[in-house]
C-alpha cells in the first residue's frame, strides 16, 4: 500500500542471503548471470527543467517530461485548419522500415510510395521556405496550388479509369446515392402503409365513440319536418334594410 516492492530488483541479494543462511542448498543457476548483467537503477527521475531560483514559487514541474515540438507543427495546424475535411480521408500510417521519409525529395510535391495528402503540402512548404527562401504565405500558396492541381488530376484519372472499365464491360453496382434512395423509398412505402392503418384506426375509434343510443332527430330531418323548419326560419329572417335575404339559407346551411 503505497510502498514500493523492490524484491524483483533484489533477486540476487536475496538468493545470496538465502544461501548464506543455509535456507537453500545452492545458489540458483542465474546467480552469476544476474551478477554480470545487473538490473538498471529504478525510480530515478532526470531533471527536465532548470529549477527556479530560490525564494520564488515552488518548482513543481522539474521532473515532468517536456513537450516535443517541430517547426512543421504550426504549418500543419494552419493547413488542416483551412482544409478540415482532409482529416477525414483515410490515411496509411504503417511504416515500412522506419526510414520511409529518408528517400523523399520535396522539390516535388508527389513522392513515390507516399500518398498525396496534407502532410505533402506541409513538407513541400517547409522545403520551399528552406531551400528557396520563400515567405511562409507564398510557400503555402504555391504548395497548396500544386496540391489542388494534383488532386484534380487524381480525379480525372479516376474518372477515366472508370470510363475505361465500363467500356470494357465492368459494372460497379449501385452507388451510395442509389442505395440511399432505395432505402428511403422502402421506408416511405412502409410509412404509407402504417399511416393508412393509423387513419383507419382513428376513423374506427371515432365511429365507435358515436355509436350507442343516439337520436337521429338532431341530425336528419324527415321531409315534412324540414319543410316546416325552413318555413319557420324563413319567416324569422328579416327582409329589411339592416338584414339580408335568407335565400333558402336555413335549408342550405343548417
Amino acid at each position: 500500500m503505497g510502498r514500493y516492492d523492490f524484491r524483483p530488483l533484489r533477486v540476487r541479494q536475496t538468493a545470496k542471503a538465502l544461501f548464506d543462511a543455509k535456507r537453500v542448498p545452492h545458489l540458483p543457476q542465474w546467480y552469476a548471470v544476474v551478477g554480470d548483467i545487473p538490473p538498471g537503477e529504478t525510480l530515478a527521475r532526470p531533471v527536465q527543467r532548470a529549477p527556479r531560483p530560490r525564494g520564488t514559487k515552488k518548482a513543481s514541474r522539474i521532473f515532468q517530461p517536456l513537450p516535443i515540438q517541430y517547426p512543421e507543427d504550426k504549418l500543419r495546424s494552419d493547413f488542416f485548419g483551412d482544409h478540415p475535411w482532409e482529416l477525414a480521408r483515410p490515411r496509411l500510417i504503417v511504416e515500412n522500415s522506419g526510414n520511409d521519409s529518408r528517400g523523399q525529395d520535396w522539390s516535388k510535391i508527389v513522392q513515390p510510395g507516399k500518398q498525396l495528402d496534407g502532410e505533402s503540402v506541409v513538407q513541400r512548404q517547409m522545403w520551399l521556405m528552406r531551400h528557396q527562401a520563400m515567405s511562409k504565405p507564398a510557400a503555402y500558396d504555391l504548395a497548396r496550388r500544386e496540391f489542388y492541381q494534383h488532386r484534380h488530376l487524381e480525379d480525372i484519372r479516376r474518372r477515366v479509369a472508370k470510363e475505361e472499365a465500363l467500356h470494357v464491360g465492368a459494372y460497379f453496382g449501385k452507388g451510395p446515392l442509389a442505395i440511399g434512395m432505395e432505402l428511403e423509398d422502402r421506408s416511405w412505402e412502409k410509412w404509407k402503409i402504417w399511416a393508412a392503418k393509423q387513419v383507419e384506426q382513428e376513423q374506427n375509434m371515432r365511429a365507435q365513440m358515436f355509436t350507442g343510443p343516439q337520436d337521429n332527430d338532431g341530425d336528419e330531418l324527415t321531409e315534412p319536418e324540414l319543410d316546416a323548419a325552413v318555413e319557420e326560419v324563413q319567416g324569422s329572417v328579416p327582409d329589411s334594410k339592416a338584414g339580408q335575404l335568407a335565400m333558402g339559407g336555413a335549408a342550405v346551411h343548417p
Binding site: A44, R45, P46, F63, Q64, P65, L66, P67, I68
Partner: peptide
C-alpha cells in the same frame, strides 16, 4: 520518467 523522451 527516465524512459520518457517527451510529450507529443
Amino acid at each position: 520518467a527516465r524512459y520518457i523522451h517527451g510529450i507529443r
